Amino acid sequence: MFSVSECFSESYAEARSKFCSAAATAGGAIRSWLNPKARGPNGETLFLDTARFGSADATEMLVLIAGTHGVEGHCGSGAQISWLRSGGPAKLPKGTGALLIHALNPYGFAWSRRVTEDNVDLNRNFVDHDKGYPANTGYLAIADAVLPQTWDDASKAEAERVFDAYAQKHGAFGLQGAISGGQYTHPDGIFFGGTAPTWSNRTVRSIAREELSQARRVGIIDFHTGLGPFGHGELICAVSPAAKSFARAKAWYGDEMTSPEGGTSTSAVVVGVMTDAFSQELPDAQVTPVALEYGTYTVPEVLGAVRADNWLHHRGDVGSALGRDIKADIKERFFPSGDKWREMVWTRADQTIGWALKGLQSR
């Protein structure tokens, strides 16, 4: 037996140490990629690590991804380490391998941020940057409220007034879409998709080509937090409902799976999601991606924490008392304290991994 709670970590450094140790103990082939553009809060180097299990020519591959959104890596890392310590690699079906990608966005993980060192939301960055970017007129209308000059009661009250007015006109979900759907006009804003592929974008594409070139069926679970009821893991398929990969995901996960485009998900419709890279880099494989999104706190509380952190890094002082409070709050909003939530994470992850492995064996 193993302790689920001890598989989770309070910092990026602790998570990395636990992950590499657990992967080595389980017999994984570990590789590490240094992020040359970023350092941690104490000047430490930051790495994306992978662990591969199974034969090099495995035709079915399970891919578990942690830390696409930085601070959410506490959850994904804990799920990955739980799988490793529970004997997951030894239980893989014959001919099936697994690739674990740990801290895809190590900067965000280390600094308790959703974004990369470029202030980019990775799940908005995987667009074709040589073409025009999707417009988000809603964000333009509320951008000044999203990032005020100061962070105090007056500025927060004014932001609430702006958001309430927008919601009255467009609905609560319309407001959520305007804020979180992704934008490409305000580099200092939130949910910014960037103007070029980030280091994490380029690196995960290289990993896909190098580690999965022999695979013919790839099942991806990308771990996220911040939407939905506390501790519930929502299976979100962000591809078009008309896509073949959507039909496969539906066959694997059934009614448990939701769709932003289909209007059944807690997530707004977004473009440029990270898992798109795998189907683009592996054109000969059947790629079936889902995000496993765990609920934490209410949407206003979570978005408030994201806004506060964004203000802090652009206009505040990270080392101040206010800065420390903001950092503690965003970590809690995406990684709730206590054993109950962590145990719920692993229970759902274990179930979902089982479904994915069964799906990979189907024809």
Rank of each mutant, 00 (worst) to 15 (best):
D128W: 02
T203C: 13
G88T: 02
R161E: 13
G87Q: 06
Q80P: 03
G132K: 14
T137V: 15
N119M: 07
F109T: 03
A143S: 13
I101D: 10
F163A: 04
Q80E: 08
D164R: 15
R114P: 00
T96V: 12
D130G: 15
G97N: 06
H170Q: 08
R85N: 05
F126H: 14
I81S: 05
D128T: 03
G177E: 15
S82V: 11
K169Y: 10
A208M: 04
A154N: 13
W199E: 09
G194E: 01
Q176W: 11
D118I: 06
Y166N: 07
T198G: 09
A145W: 01
L92I: 04
N105M: 03
H102N: 06
A178C: 08
K91T: 15
L104K: 08
G182K: 01
W199M: 08
W83P: 07
P197H: 12
A215Y: 05
W199L: 04
L175A: 05
A143Y: 08
I190P: 00
E210M: 11
G108V: 07
A90H: 07
G219H: 07
V120K: 00
E211A: 12
R216L: 14
T96P: 02
F109W: 10
D130I: 09
R202C: 11
L147S: 06
A98H: 01
N125W: 00
K94V: 12
E211V: 03
L175G: 06
I190N: 01
H102G: 01
I220L: 11
D188S: 14
I220M: 12
N119F: 11
K131I: 07
R114Q: 05
P197D: 12
G95R: 12
R217L: 09
A165K: 10
D152V: 00
D188W: 09
T203F: 09
F109G: 03
T195Y: 15
W83S: 03
A145N: 02
L140T: 15
G97P: 04
